[in-house]
Amino acid sequence: MARASTGDHVQQLRMSVFRGDASEGEMITYDVPVREGMVVLDAVLWVQANLAPDLAVRWNCKAAKCGSCSAEINGFPRLMCKSPVSDYGAELSVRPMRTFPIIRDLVTDVSWNYEVNKRIPKFTPSEKDAFDPQPWRMQQEDVDRITEFRKCIECFLCQDVCHVLRDHDRKDAFFGPRFMIRIAGLEMHPKDSLDRRPLLKNEAGVGMCNITKCCTEVCPEHIHITDNGIIPLKERVADLYFDPVRALGRRLRGGGREPDRGRSR
């Protein structure tokens, strides 16, 4: 039986966990003894070791470095390893991420993300840089600009919470915040030479984002996904496609409506 002791210290936790697969499932409640400093992942693993040996959960480092243990705790997308039980009182619920198909219990099929990643052209230095026999020089401030994006641990919580993917299921039209950040990290890399703006406008669908900033809110790495990543990318795309001076230039040249895809900057 769950009971909260005096103050904020909880002796026992009543945790309900989704058990089931893609076709059916239910919330099952477990009573878990709480020790100091326990995080939700500890509680789930305690249940696994003691009450439900087949409880499926994905996790690796338990130190918020690998981004494997994403789930929805009381409805909020979070890393289980970074969510102290003491933040929740005597009861909480854990469900799998809703945006991805369920494999079993808390484990979802996130393979779509890996397919998307393959469609982003890799880091490509200019030919001059690639064959430069001297070590590269870059300034710390240029590195600092993309460091934020490269902190991403691919927990896919931002993908989970993105309205375009979650509510409208437009995985066909939008790569999602994670891959906007991936592209931002490449586009703003001081030594990268590709132009991924056509990709952003078309396949990656940067225009689908309507800047509700939910992704930024759930990011465990505190990446300013919208402000520092998506909005600057939108601006870059707008510069290329919607700048009136450039548009006039294109019309005068008599070219097509769109610039060439994948050309070098």
Partner: peptide
Amino acid sequence: VLELERWGAVFDRTRDGLIH
């Protein structure tokens, strides 16, 4: 390490722009 940098890895820099 230098090869990894050419594959896109980003390192902190020294004041003259080399890998710190």
